[in-house]
Design a protein around this nucleic acid. Structure first.
Lengths: 153, 153
DNA sequence: TCTAATAAGGAATTATATTCCTGAATTGAT
DNA sequence: ATCAATTCAGGAATATAATTCCTTATTAGA
């Protein structure tokens, strides 16, 4: 199934605001309600639309501090990697974990309430045998979006 | 307005799946549809719920490569910062920009189609006089969520 | 305890999603 | 080019959900 110009327009709208009704989307992209509904279904079935979520304000829920943590290791073994995977999955403050190119290391993004909160997170990582850990704190969030650019479609 | 236990439960549900109907949420948190609807309205009015969005699959829309770019500067002046702000806001591949603690630098997260795509982005940054740029590519996305932990509420 | 204020639920109403059916456009074979 | 066969689109009907409105509890303060 190919994503055409109309699908692209639908995706752009829904990335911005998923509360739009089928009718509203249909009108904006100039097709009928039914046709629009079918396209939206299709895009979900294909997995192009992964999910619809509510985005919360981190400050208002008591998580004003974002921190990037890089973790280095010289342990190449599968056991270590598996343990790392398991530990990070189960810490809810950790929002993202990436294995990076270059050095053999990982980048973690986490949100915490304050330095005390970071310290608790740090200890959890240390306890899990992730020793080579270094943190950078976010001073100012200048841009933050979940909208992917769809130019290439 | 205080966020109580019930609000917290509502937020946890909607962070995970914003397609849940008011009725479904109400049932899960054991209150009436109307009460639940009012709480949801309130949470939106307060800005605790910032928005509802559709999350797309980056691979399926042709953006399989994520890159972190750090930008250093020795230019402290307001003009440079303003230019930086303007340039990054207008590049849609750039999803996040953070000013970090420690060294005077910035961290950018971007998505691109491939190395060619990265190179185009790189050139845009260079053109905008952001010279001290270094990239790290994501090899594997191990965790990626927009769900904030609400334990502290 | 009484009153005012606040919060909750049920029923009615409105809006929206979803299905179903019909007709148009497109494709592929002859 | 013509004729099925298939895919795609739209309108109307139906089902589901959101929203409003009204009435009843519950709470806080005098």
């Amino acid at each position: 199934m190919k994503i055409d110009r109309t699908d692209k327009a639908i995706l752009e709208l829904l990335q911005r605001d998923a509360t739009l009704s089928v009718g509203q989307v249909a009108e904006k992209v100039n097709i009928s309600k039914t046709a629009c509904w079918r396209r939206m279904q299709q895009l979900e079935k294909q997995g192009v639309i992964e999910k619809r979520v509510a985005l919360l304000n981190a400050e208002q829920v008591g998580l004003p501090l974002t921190v990037y943590i890089s973790v280095c290791t010289n342990q190449h073994n599968a056991g270590w990697a598996q343990n790392f995977q398991r530990v990070t999955q189960n810490i809810p403050e950790i929002l993202e974990v990436h294995r990076m190119s270059g050095d053999l290391d990982y980048m973690i993004k986490a949100v915490v309430s304050d330095m005390k909160g970071y310290d608790r997170l740090y200890k959890k990582l240390i306890d899990a045998d992730l020793s080579d850990v270094s943190a950078s704190f976010v001073m100012e969030e200048m841009k933050h979006t979940t909208e992917l650019p769809l130019d290439q479609l």
